[in-house]
């Protein structure tokens, strides 16, 4: 009993130092030196100012930008939460219907054949993180009509930009391809500046 108490007390102090400080500091040290950009959140700077991170989605409402997926947390990366919308919730249905109506209204003007049934689910259902940096390629292709019109770019050109900013599956296998919205919009800005 006394032996256990001593071992517990000493053990916890030593292990807290090793696992709680030494280990994370060692990872931080190596990470900061070797993978400095990634370790600090893959920040994107424009003219020396931080405009966001390539890993964090942000809200876009202007017509000349590709729009991110709906976010429950208003794209706040420092206080994240899900919608927790249930699969059979009337609220869920209404929210999706609202997002769908807005999407149809926004995109339908530039893509007249667009029907509700064609809307990709990611465009009208909130992401898990609230800061999903990506949209599906299908979603981007629909929005491309609007971008091309507003930015007065050929649709092909926009589609090529989409391809350039589409991240593939991990090792070609894991996950799904997605279009990085922030990077794509930055590229658009560069393109039409």
């Amino acid at each position: 009993m006394k032996k256990d108490l001593t071992a517990t007390a000493v053990g916890l102090i030593v292990l807290t130092l090793v696992l709680g400080l030494l280990y994370p500091l060692a990872v931080t040290g190596v990470g900061q030196v070797v993978f400095n950009d990634a370790a600090n959140g893959s920040q994107i700077r424009v003219d020396g100012k931080v405009v966001g991170s390539r890993l964090l989605g942000q809200g876009f409402s202007r017509a000349e930008y590709f729009h991110s997926r709906p976010s429950q947390s208003d794209y706040n990366p420092s206080a994240t939460f899900f919608s927790n919308a249930g699969p059979n919730g009337a609220d869920t249905r209404d929210a999706i219907a609202r997002y769908a109506a807005a999407y149809l209204k926004t995109e339908g003007r530039y893509d007249p054949g667009l029907t509700r049934a064609q809307i990709p689910p990611d465009a009208v259902q909130t992401s898990a993180s609230g800061v999903d940096p990506q949209i599906t390629v299908a979603n981007a292709r629909i929005q491309a009509h609007r971008i091309a019109a507003v930015r007065r770019l050929p649709l092909d050109r926009v589609n090529r930009l989409i391809d350039d900013h589409t991240d593939g599956r991990g090792l070609g296998l894991f996950g799904e391809p997605g279009v990085n919205v922030l990077e794509l919009n930055l590229a658009l800005d560069k393109e039409t500046r």
């Binding site: 997926r69 899900f82 919608s83 927790n84 919308a85 249930g86 699969p87 059979n88 919730g89 009337a90 869920t92 249905r93 209404d94 999706i96 219907a97 769908a100 509700r116 049934a117 064609q118 809307i119 990709p120 689910p121 990611d122 009208v124 259902q125 909130t126 992401s127 898990a128 993180s129 999903d132 940096p133 990506q134 949209i135 599906t136 991240d167 894991f174 996950g175 799904e176 997605g178």
Partner: peptide, 27 residues
Amino acid sequence: HGSPAQQLAGIHGGNMEGKETRFGIGS
């Protein structure tokens, strides 16, 4: 197969509510 809520809202395809694009439905 998708959720009843989204189907009633007229949206086809899988259930992407609370899922991230880079993972998709499979992952």
